[in-house]
């Protein structure tokens, strides 16, 4: 049953030190900035953060990194023109980095949400990102064994929720949201509005409410 929270702070009050946090968004599109700000105020540290990028500018994920709360980043593309916060931490050895090809990142999260124990993917075969990983030749092609990435908490930015916890997204801000929403123990969605159950056409629901634990309009 989804809990409609009053404030972003209510949604993350119980996040523990050492948690793995899945953070939606591709750049700033779909980035749940208000939930991250609440997590900064809440104070949990020693976090592992899973997100496509490693923060842009000085807000959102970059602000969490700047506070020194993140021990490890798992992402596909940390280095960007405005990723100076991460760049500084990485170059001074104050943060761990696991680089994962973008499709493998999405699929590893999807696998966690779908109860898949591991999967073989052709992406990355023969490259440094497959070093030390188990491989198998199937039908003449080499595949790499990849394991799921499960979160303790997922923070996603969606467009609209209903009181049953169903979510819809907007344009390319959808990106990692629907996948991450399946793959964490506690799933929090930041939305622009929460409507009565029935006001989102069931044919159009992208994330069914079964996956969603808490929603908030910041």
């Amino acid at each position: 049953m989804v809990l409609v929270c009053e404030t972003p702070d209510d949604t993350v009050a119980d996040v523990a030190d050492g948690s793995t946090i899945l953070v939606g968004g591709f750049g700033m599109a779909g980035m749940p900035v208000d939930l991250i700000d609440a997590l900064i105020r809440q104070g949990a540290g020693d976090l592992t953060v899973v997100s496509n990028n490693a923060g842009n500018g000085d807000t959102g994920l970059a602000a969490l990194l700047a506070k020194g709360r993140v021990r490890k980043m798992i992402c596909s593309f940390p280095r960007q023109s405005d990723s100076w916060v991460f760049d500084g931490l990485y170059r001074s050895g104050r943060i761990e980095l696991e680089v994962v090809p973008q499709g493998n990142l999405a699929e590893r999260i999807r696998a966690a949400g779908a109860g898949i124990g591991a999967f073989f993917t052709p992406t990355g075969a023969g490259t440094p990102l497959a070093d030390g990983k188990e491989t198998r030749d199937i039908d003449g092609r080499t595949y790499v064994l990849e394991y799921p990435i499960k979160g303790d908490v997922a923070l996603v930015g969606a467009y609209r929720a209903d009181r049953a916890g169903n979510l819809v997204y907007r344009k390319t801000a959808r990106n990692f949201g629907p996948v991450m929403a399946t793959a964490a123990t506690t799933v929090v969605a930041q939305v622009t509005e929460i409507v009565e159950a029935g006001l989102i056409d069931p044919e159009n629901v992208v994330t069914p409410g079964i996956y969603v634990d808490r929603v908030v309009v910041p």
Binding site: S76, D87, Y90, R91, P101, G103, N104, T123
Partner: peptide, 15 residues
């Protein structure tokens, strides 16, 4: 000092 960043390049290359 370069920071590795792969994005979707490996997925595109083989896909």
């Amino acid at each position: 000092q370069s920071i590795p960043a792969v994005g979707g390049a490996m997925d595109l290359a083989i896909g």
